[in-house]
């Protein structure tokens, strides 16, 4: 009987001590125990500071993500620029000529293909080499320059340097071995001038629809 009452009184006194100590102010508790004298910051301040820190972190994450997105986009753009054009994948001339724009005469219009971006010829073996500047000078070769033209009553020829200089450089035509000057255009039909390329790699004098690509009007 005495044991039971002793145990009960111990439990009750322990309980009371806990409640009393728990109910004490921080200052009072500091008197009784060590290490509890520091007052924790008010909850409102702590939450606000945490939130501010969190906002800062999120801002930094967002900036990082945006930077990563930009880098990825730039990489993708480079990839699309590097991706071969359909014309570069063509396996045969028939396949390619279907992809290229045509002139009224039925022949492939390479100049139009270049303008439209259907083809993308490099200016050098190194893909980063810049193209030569185009030379924008149209000249008119009238029939006084050519006995043949005069004899046949052909209208003057308009020669566009711009159209040619997007493929060729000056010395491709203006050289000793392949002399073109203002004084002799009579040999055009003798494989000396235009015919070096026209009819071999450039449009040929194929039919009457071709004439007005050079001659200002039909005779």
């Amino acid at each position: 009987m005495t044991h039971k009452s002793l145990i009960t009184s111990l439990i009750v006194s322990g309980w009371l001590a806990l409640v009393l100590v728990g109910g004490c102010s921080i200052k009072t508790r500091a008197l009784l125990f060590d290490g509890v004298d520091k007052e924790p910051p008010p909850p409102t301040t702590r939450v606000r500071r945490d939130l501010l820190a969190e906002i800062e972190t999120l801002k930094r994450d967002l900036a990082d993500a945006q930077k990563a997105l930009e880098t990825a986009k730039a990489k993708q753009q480079v990839k699309t620029a590097d991706a071969p054009l359909p014309t570069e994948l063509a396996k045969s001339w028939v396949e390619l000529s279907e992809l290229l724009p045509k002139h009224r005469s039925g022949q492939v219009d390479w100049g139009a293909a270049l303008q439209a971006g259907t083809i993308r010829p490099q200016a050098g073996l190194d893909p980063t080499v810049l193209a030569y500047a185009e030379f924008n000078l149209d000249i008119t070769l009238d029939r006084t320059k050519s006995p043949t033209m005069a004899a046949r009553g052909l209208s003057a020829v308009k020669f566009s340097h711009a159209a040619h200089s997007q493929w060729l450089i000056c010395d491709n035509c203006h050289t000793k071995g392949f002399q073109i000057n203002n004084n002799g255009t009579d040999n055009i039909l003798k494989h000396d001038y235009c015919d070096n390329c026209h009819g071999t790699v450039a449009f040929a004098m194929a039919n009457l629809d071709t004439c007005d690509r050079c001659h200002l009007r039909l005779p």
Binding site: A90, R120, P121, A123, W167, N172, G177, V201
Partner: peptide, 17 residues
């Protein structure tokens, strides 16, 4: 021609004729 302009090879590597 789809890949290079004429002057890339002419005359550095080949003549015109």
């Amino acid at each position: 021609r789809v890949r290079y302009k004429c002057y890339v090879c002419h005359f550095e590597i080949y003549q015109m004729q």
